[in-house]
Simulated assay, not measured.
Amino acid sequence: MTRFLGEYEVTLDAKGRFLLPSGFKKQLPENELRFVVNRGFEKCLTLYPIQNWEPLHAKISELNDFDPKVRAFRRQFLGGATEVEADTAGRLLLPPTLRDFAGLTKDVILVAAVDKIEIWDSATYKKFFEDFSPDAFSDLAKEVMVKNEGKNE
């Protein structure tokens, strides 16, 4: 499984394409430039390397289709999910419906999110941090890390 680190500013061209930064390319398996892009949980997109997407998709496929919450989750999570592959110039094309969902303009920030990359409109991403105080972050970190302590061992 590929894991990412880093944060990069990129520019969308008129067709909705961006160049995958070399910092992320170096973290991918050699010659693997196939991804699935879908809606994120917040107002962003998520870009999964195909090798990280496949086990997640398999897990979602095993959920009980008779449960209305499962169907609602699948619609939200899988709706718009699209396989994308870098072109010969190394650019990835984001579908217009997904760009609209995330409110992406020309300036975009790509953010490592463990096994995926989040794609944010630059202004939206910066506002997220402006609205989050250091004390609030400290409280959140304590709550999340204490609650999950020992689960990854």
Rank of each mutant, 00 (worst) to 15 (best):
E54A: 07
E85C: 07
K59I: 03
D67K: 14
G16K: 09
P96L: 05
K26I: 07
M145I: 00
P29C: 04
E118P: 01
K147W: 02
N64V: 02
E54I: 04
M1K: 10
T11V: 12
R75Y: 06
L5N: 09
K43H: 05
E42M: 08
M1A: 11
G79I: 08
S122G: 07
G79L: 11
D115T: 13
N64G: 05
K127V: 11
T2M: 06
R75H: 05
L12M: 15
A102I: 10
F66T: 15
H57F: 13
G6Y: 01
K106L: 10
K147T: 07
D13S: 05
E7P: 02
N152L: 15
S122D: 14
P21I: 02
T97S: 14
D135E: 12
F4P: 00
L92D: 00
E7H: 03
F41M: 13
Q27H: 05
V114K: 08
D139M: 14
A89I: 00
D131E: 15
N31L: 11
F128T: 15
A14K: 15
T11C: 02
G40R: 06
E30L: 05
E130D: 14
V144C: 00
R3I: 07
A123F: 12
D67G: 09
L63E: 12
E30A: 10
C44Q: 03
L104P: 09
F24K: 00
L110K: 03
V108S: 07
F137Y: 09
K116Q: 15
I50N: 05
L12C: 06
V111R: 12
R91G: 02
P49S: 09
A89W: 00
K25N: 04
D115L: 03
N64K: 13
E83P: 05
D13F: 07
T46R: 11
L28S: 08
